[in-house]
Amino acid sequence: MEKIDIFDDYLKDKMPAKERELFEINLAENGAMKEAFLNYQTAVELLKYNGLKNEVKKAHSQFSSQKAKKIPFLKIAAAMVFGLLSISTFWIGNTNGSDLLAELPIQYIEPQHRGANEEKVEAELRYLNKDFDGVVAIFNSSKTPNEKLDFLAIMSYYNLKNYAKAIDLITKIENQQLSTKYANEYEFYMCQSLLGINKYSEALKNIKKMDEKNPYKATFNWKYMAKIKILALKERLF
């Protein structure tokens, strides 16, 4: 048995007690043996140290490469956030109610056969011919405009982008609290007209208040709503 193997057995506690005792006596009395054993112990310590050191080095390089990978990712993320912020800021700064209305170009089209097959009155014919000024003139000269004329006048003001006037007339009709077959249209064009005069918060409130059964409500999709909300926030802040 090699000396090294004896040392291994001693150090790894594989030696029987009696043998161990003899070995220790030999170690104390034999200088050369002691020197060899010290050398062996040093070598073992060095091997253990080196093993652990390599583990730390390995973990360190794993950690460093992970850290290095994270940095480009953070840079890309930061660039994307910056880009999105810039686009949003640009969009917010350059968008108004008219742009929103252009995105949702729902204009009331007078049906050719609403009700019976009666001959169209002049205002209706003018509206169909997109003579909105003509409709407004008839409305203004009428002493007792009927429900239809009221409505066509509001739609004409809306088409002429005179949103303030459209709002006035809708408000007036709503204040009369009469039942009307144009209630859905009034709710919708009130919101749109408010957007037209850049009153986003009020428009938002009106949209939220809109009757769920109103078919026009579905036209306000999440994207459109998000834009209104952003503009409403801008309105509140500035």
């Binding site: 060899a36 040093t42 070598a43």
Partner: peptide, 22 residues
């Protein structure tokens, strides 16, 4: 390995002291 250590007596000596193995 132990023979190689023998070739560095001074370092080995200071290592003995640090390791407190004698």
């Amino acid at each position: 390995l132990t023979e190689k250590l023998e070739q560095h007596p001074k370092m080995k000596e200071s290592l003995y002291k640090a390791l407190k193995i004698f």
